[in-house]
Amino acid sequence: MSLRLSPYLMMNGNAKEAIQFYEKALGAKLLFNQTFGEMPKNPEFPLPEEAKELVAHAMIKVGETDLMFSDTFPGQTSQIGDQVTICITTNDIEKSNQIFKSLQQDGQVKMPLQETFFSPAYGIVTDKFGVTFQIYTEGQQ
């Protein structure tokens, strides 16, 4: 079983600009970038035209560290202080469940741990100290 913690920056529509800035300022290398428009369509949540070019998920490498990015999904709000979350990555669904359940005690579930198109178990929880974690399980669905 593997387990990694990575900083995840939630941007308010300027993730592309931030990535370009960190590439220059920190010598970062872009590893992955996907826009909301490149995600599978969901008829229950139609994507506004102006959101199609926003970053759904991106990763850069700064030295030995991965730094992840996303713009907030259209309709969600973001405020200063909510920009930085911690992404906990594992390749074990049972471990993801255990971590998620532990962190939600006296905390708040923002997105239940569930299967998504990009992960067999993904969820977002803010713990009792106000720290928000994204639990991401690697692996094939």
Rank of each mutant, 00 (worst) to 15 (best):
I99D: 03
L3N: 06
I99M: 11
M1D: 13
S2E: 12
T77D: 14
L103F: 15
K41Q: 13
G63L: 11
G37F: 12
G27V: 03
Y122R: 02
F100Y: 08
E94Q: 14
S2N: 14
D71I: 01
E115C: 00
S102V: 07
Q134W: 13
L3Y: 02
P120Q: 07
T85E: 12
A58C: 09
K110Y: 08
L3E: 02
I124H: 02
S2H: 13
V131L: 13
E38R: 09
L3A: 08
V131Y: 01
P74V: 11
E64I: 03
V55S: 05
G130N: 10
L9R: 01
Y122V: 00
H57I: 00
D92R: 02
L30E: 13
S102G: 15
P7N: 08
L5T: 11
Q83H: 14
I80E: 08
E53P: 02
D71C: 06
N12W: 10
N91P: 04
K128T: 03
D106I: 03
K24H: 07
L31K: 02
P43A: 12
L67K: 07
D66K: 07
T132S: 15
L54R: 14
E138A: 12
I86W: 12
F118Y: 15
Q114H: 06
S70E: 06
D106F: 11
K110W: 12
F117V: 01
Q83T: 12
V131H: 04
T132E: 14
F133P: 10
D106R: 10
K101P: 03
